[in-house]
Write a protein that binds this DNA or RNA. Structure first.
Lengths: 366, 366
DNA sequence: CTGAAAGCGCTAACAC
DNA sequence: GTGTTAGCGCTTTCAG
């Protein structure tokens, strides 16, 4: 390699310039170039200028991969999402990505489509890629030893939206049980007594009236809240009012249809998530049922359209933005040192709109 | 370092196991361990078993970062999205992530919120992280020298949804001009002559009736299509029917309000994207206007709610899933070798639903 | 203030 | 079939 003076002509590089090229062109050692580029140690102002000039001339871009190798940190977080396209998770992604960036981290994203195997692979790949930490929306409640910290190469993890009790991992969730109870209470306040529950839950085939085993915690809690709120006021639940569906298309609709076809069909439906709200809307539309009059609906997770359509939809809102922010901060906290890995459960609040009919005969307005 | 036999006791490692640890525990050289783990070259079956066993016992996870450094490839794609949360881009993300994975690539995602500076930074960070290629939804049409291939370290790039004519980069877009023309033609077919256009366009302040300079190509093409279709049938465009808004909340609503308040207000509105459709819905709701009767609407980009609400919304659908797939395949094609970097423009199609009123007096059904 | 040299974990010639 | 060795690009002691 020929030695180049300070103002040497720009060499033609086939590959992207390395720190060696910069050092050479500036006529200094690699170490000095690194000091300037990495902005540490001490370098004569003049030398610094030379190096910076050389870097600029060469269009030098640091190879962060190489830096990572020495530093042992990649400034990258892994985000494993159960279902991109579901409004609540899209929002979570946006916030995770944006606030990670604000903290100097990039985000590697994987989508599992609620499939266990995809999740397992995603985690492995991210560990291989040496992410500094993981934010995971877990999609299964069994066979999750791959999420056990002992298999995580010492990398911190935060669960988002769902907990995994047996593993005792840090999680950031919504108060789903309370949210469901509030929804049911709202129906009751408005004179409803026949209240149904349609649950969207990945990983089951078609639709079924029996509660599947191994539901993720958020759904589980919403179901528990529903039963608890009904029981609290002594309202009986007709088993035909509760149904579970495994996909957003046919079985979700079928589940809703099934409930509406029951002998003493509910006047009100609690939909377990955004997909299910859409399914209720779809069936109502097909049957010519006017939401908020012929059929009442409360959904979970506020979506951009929920407030704007007519009638607008009353929802139990998951504070997903805040949850995502908390998850990132908690994770970065764990990475940086302080192991204050405390789980948080954020309150959910009922957003009153127009989709619940007031069944009270007189004018008993609250 | 002490030599360990085949069945040596498991050493307690503070840091994650490296290939050295595996080799040592298996009693072979690093190279052999690498051969087994990387599945190349030839190794005696017995040795292979030893190595695999050792790796398993140690919970060995390959350090892909180190591998990348040698290989010069990271198997990672960079995705720079203009607005996470807009249905069309969320879908693009899902497809990019999923199909990249199907090709053995992971995806680093950044969100620019349509801000030039964020985009510039995102690209730089991704180059630093040595992504093998970039998929970018560019948010600006000026100052984009950072997207010039000569500043991209030789890494291929594919533009999604929008072109950048001066740079001549490969792009995958929709036939926006044609789409807008189809929408206008549909209005006209249904007897509308006063047809308005509300445009959502980031990076302007508030709302304005004049067409801002430097609009991204997709929006530009939609606007051009609108004017062209009107001109084609000799329909005059009242300037008051066209308005531009810079944010999804107040100014989008204000733009719609402004148009509806015009002396000869349009009977039909073409909304330039999903955000704008929502704004039209919002204003219509506030004014008690029934879409599909009092005011007709055609939007762009099909969203999950568009078909389900009442009335359902007629849209010009961007084939975003296919576009995203094509973008990934094109990019990976460029990475792998074959520089068949041809841009594609995919057809858009009008999805007829219920949001356009038939103004023709008699029963001239088509 | 700057340079020489070691090494992060891995793979790939090249020997034997 | 397997081991030795060099080196990807970078940072960081340690000398001077």
């Amino acid at each position: 390699m020929k030695q180049l003076g300070n103002d040497a002509p720009l060499p033609i590089l086939s590959a992207p310039a390395t720190i060696n090229d910069v050092a050479q062109l500036a006529g200094v050692s690699r170490a000095t170039a690194s000091r300037v580029l990495g902005d540490y140690g001490t370098v004569k102002a003049e030398t610094r200028t030379m190096v910076l000039g050389a870097a600029a001339r060469l269009g030098y871009v640091a190879n962060v991969i190489a830096r990572s190798m020495r530093a042992g940190t990649t400034q990258t977080l892994g985000l494993v999402i159960a279902e991109i396209g579901l409004s609540v998770f899209d929002t979570a992604m946006r916030v995770v990505i944006d606030s990670a960036r604000a903290h100097g981290y990039q985000v590697l994203v994987s989508n599992t489509n609620e499939e266990l195997e995809a999740e397992r692979t995603a985690i492995r790949v991210m560990l291989e890629k040496q992410v500094d930490g993981l934010i995971v929306v877990p999609s299964s409640v069994t066979d999750l030893d791959f999420l056990n910290p002992k298999n995580l190469q010492g990398r911190p993890i935060v669960l988002l939206d769902r907990t995994l009790a047996p593993l005792g991992l840090t999680s950031v969730t919504g108060a789903n049980r309370q949210g469901a109870m509030d929804a049911v209470a709202h129906f009751i306040e408005n004179g409803h007594t026949r209240i149904g529950l349609v649950v969207f839950t990945a990983n089951i085939e078609g639709q079924t009236p029996e509660q599947p085993a191994g539901l993720i915690s958020s759904i589980n809690d919403r179901i528990a809240g529903y039963y608890e709120a009904m029981a609290a006021v002594g309202l009986a639940v007709n088993p035909a009012w509760v149904c579970f569906a495994g996909d957003a298309d046919v079985s979700a609709s079928a589940a809703v249809e099934g409930i509406l076809d029951a002998a003493d069909a509910p006047t009100a439906l609690l939909a377990s998530n955004g997909n299910m709200s859409l399914a209720v809307l779809k069936v109502a539309k097909a049957r010519g049922l006017l939401i908020g009059r012929d059929l009442s609906l409360v959904g979970f997770d506020d979506a951009p359209w929920a407030s704007i359509i007519t009638p607008s939809i009353t929802v139990v809102n998951l504070p997903i933005e805040e949850m995502a922010r908390v998850a990132v901060e908690n994770l970065i906290g764990q990475i940086s040192a302080a192991p204050d890995a405390r789980s948080s459960e954020l309150p959910m609040n009922l957003v009153l709109r127009e989709s619940v009919a007031d069944l009270r005969t007189a004018s008993t307005r609250k």
